[in-house]
């Protein structure tokens, strides 16, 4: 099964989904069938004042995940994820990583075709 990257505030399935993609604290890379996971820190992107989303997209891409679940993805990160062939599920803040995965498994997450808000500009 394809692995899923979920933006999270801490390295646990019960962590809240971090609403920000680019500036998320980190990502849980989860196998949606077994719920086995690994954690990638996103601290380096968090500290960036520019290009954080692009950097986070690179991080997710390197992890091998094929799907991203998060709150929102900025336009540049969106473009980058899209180019890497990674699918994007948004508006999943205000729940835990586990709940987001359940929702995804139940087929209740719409995969976005456009970014849902603009970034912070230059």
């Amino acid at each position: 099964m394809e692995k899923i990257a979920v933006s999270c505030e801490e390295p646990s399935l019960d962590s809240p989904v971090d609403p920000r993609f680019g500036r998320a604290a980190g990502f849980l890379i989860v196998d949606p069938d077994t719920l086995e996971f690994s954690y990638v820190d996103n601290g380096a992107s968090q500290a960036m004042s520019q290009g954080a989303g692009i950097q986070a997209a690179e991080t997710v891409c390197r992890s091998g995940a094929k799907v991203v679940l998060t709150g929102y993805v900025g336009p540049k990160a969106f473009q980058a994820l899209f180019a890497a062939g990674i699918k994007i599920g948004q508006n999943l803040e205000k729940m835990t990583v586990r709940q987001a995965i359940d929702k995804f498994n139940a087929g209740e997450v719409d995969m976005a075709t456009a970014p849902n808000r603009m970034g912070h500009g230059a």
Partner: peptide
Amino acid sequence: QFKAIVVIGKTVLPFPEM
């Protein structure tokens, strides 16, 4: 230095505005 070009997956993505 400006994150204006990235290699991601099997492609290269320039961000001309940056």
